[in-house]
Simulated assay, not measured.
Amino acid sequence: MIGVILAAGEGNRLRPFTEDMPKVMLPVGNKPIVEYLIESLRRCGIREIVLVVGYKKERIMEYFGDGKGWNVNIKYVFQDKQIGTGHALLQAEKHVEEEEFLVLPGDNIIDGDSLSLLMKSKFQSLIVEKSKIPSKYGVVDIDGDVVKRIVEKPSIPETSIVSTGMYKLEREIFDVLKELVKEGKNRLTDAINELAKEKKIKAVKGNGKWKDAVYPWDLLTINADVLCNLSGSISGKIERNVTMKGSVQIGEDTIIHPNCYIRGPVVIGKGCEIGPDVCILPSTSIGDDVTVHPFTEIRNSIVMNDVSIGSNSFIENSVIGEGCRIASHFSTLVGEGSIEVEDG
């Protein structure tokens, strides 16, 4: 069976982090989101993967190449204009030779058990989950275990059951998509709704481990979740009087200077310089080539590659983008607030 991953979108709601990379390449646990999806497919025995790419596609293609480093075979197809998920899937048609195949959004994380249930379904199927904020997603109208329709982002949802966007489909979906695209209907959910009028589409209930990156703060939730499975390993240099507790992973050529305290789960990439007298607390991911100057504390945060954080700083519940330079005595403020986000 082939897995088609839709990875062409920019991710407007994840700006400014997506100004330099597509949303599927945003790091959690020091790996791109889409890498976890590829690994889940491989664990389920799927080694033929088609990646539909578009926005900043070079970042994806340079990182994964032909997929051999992940023991999979990756082919790329291009969606030049990101006008919808249905249109994106249509670009992959010539590479889908088998009757059945999987379709997955590249900015989601799902466990292998849920994917296995999807693969074993005897019908065309969709993984569904309960959501506390269903208005962010396609809300699924289900009769028993049969999908009747999907309502995209309703202002007043009738149920908390939402679509994960992860499907097991048959090749007939391409014929439906071609007709709908002619009418300007470019979403995959349009095709699913049309198909559901005549064919049985089964709702496969996930086990609650599905994660979706919609807004920047979702990255912190996903990061904390993936770090729960972190295996500790030390490849860098640890100097005197450094205390490390829990699962801590430190990359090659990284130096942890004296009197630092690190409590996992924490992952620190390659070529970093930490400390002295730095405190790093759980659910923190620090990328490659990062410098953290003395007397700084970081907790529950994502620090991307090539960042410098000045001395006497306090970073909490934050996502720090690639290449940021933060002066000394910087502090993030945590509290209630409101933000207006453009939907798109």
Results as ranks from 00 to 15, higher is better:
5 I>R: 06
7 A>G: 04
8 A>H: 08
12 N>D: 14
19 E>R: 14
22 P>Y: 01
23 K>E: 12
25 M>G: 00
26 L>H: 01
27 P>H: 02
29 G>K: 06
33 I>N: 03
35 E>N: 06
35 E>G: 02
41 L>N: 08
41 L>Y: 04
42 R>D: 07
43 R>P: 01
43 R>S: 14
46 I>D: 04
48 E>D: 14
53 V>M: 05
54 G>R: 07
54 G>S: 05
57 K>I: 09
57 K>C: 08
59 R>V: 06
60 I>S: 02
61 M>D: 03
61 M>Q: 13
63 Y>T: 03
65 G>L: 08
67 G>I: 12
67 G>W: 09
67 G>D: 07
69 G>T: 13
73 N>L: 08
74 I>A: 05
75 K>W: 02
80 D>A: 12
80 D>K: 15
83 I>E: 15
85 T>F: 09
85 T>H: 12
86 G>S: 05
94 K>I: 09
96 V>E: 05
98 E>F: 00
102 L>F: 06
103 V>A: 07
104 L>R: 11
106 G>P: 01
109 I>R: 08
110 I>M: 13
110 I>V: 15
112 G>M: 14
115 L>P: 03
121 S>P: 05
124 Q>S: 13
124 Q>C: 13
125 S>H: 04
129 E>G: 10
130 K>F: 10
131 S>F: 10
133 I>R: 11
134 P>T: 10
135 S>I: 12
141 D>I: 08
146 V>W: 09
148 K>N: 12
154 P>C: 10
155 S>F: 11
159 T>L: 05
159 T>N: 11
161 I>M: 11
162 V>Q: 06
163 S>R: 08
163 S>A: 13
164 T>Y: 11
166 M>A: 14
168 K>F: 04
173 I>F: 07
174 F>N: 04
178 K>Y: 05
184 G>N: 09
190 D>M: 01
191 A>S: 08
194 E>R: 15
196 A>S: 14
199 K>Y: 07
200 K>N: 09
204 V>E: 11
205 K>Q: 11
207 N>S: 12
207 N>C: 10
208 G>D: 04
208 G>T: 04
208 G>R: 02
208 G>M: 03
213 A>L: 03
217 W>C: 00
218 D>R: 04
218 D>V: 04
218 D>M: 02
220 L>H: 02
230 L>K: 05
230 L>Y: 03
231 S>R: 14
237 K>A: 10
237 K>G: 01
240 R>Y: 13
242 V>T: 04
243 T>L: 14
244 M>W: 00
244 M>F: 01
245 K>N: 09
246 G>I: 07
246 G>A: 04
249 Q>A: 14
252 E>K: 15
254 T>I: 01
254 T>W: 02
260 C>R: 00
262 I>D: 00
263 R>Q: 13
269 G>S: 01
271 G>A: 00
273 E>F: 05
279 C>Q: 12
279 C>E: 14
279 C>T: 15
280 I>C: 01
281 L>N: 03
285 S>V: 07
300 N>V: 02
303 V>P: 00
304 M>P: 00
306 D>H: 14
310 G>R: 10
315 I>R: 01
315 I>F: 01
317 N>S: 13
320 I>C: 02
321 G>H: 07
323 G>N: 06
330 F>R: 06
337 G>W: 08
343 D>R: 15
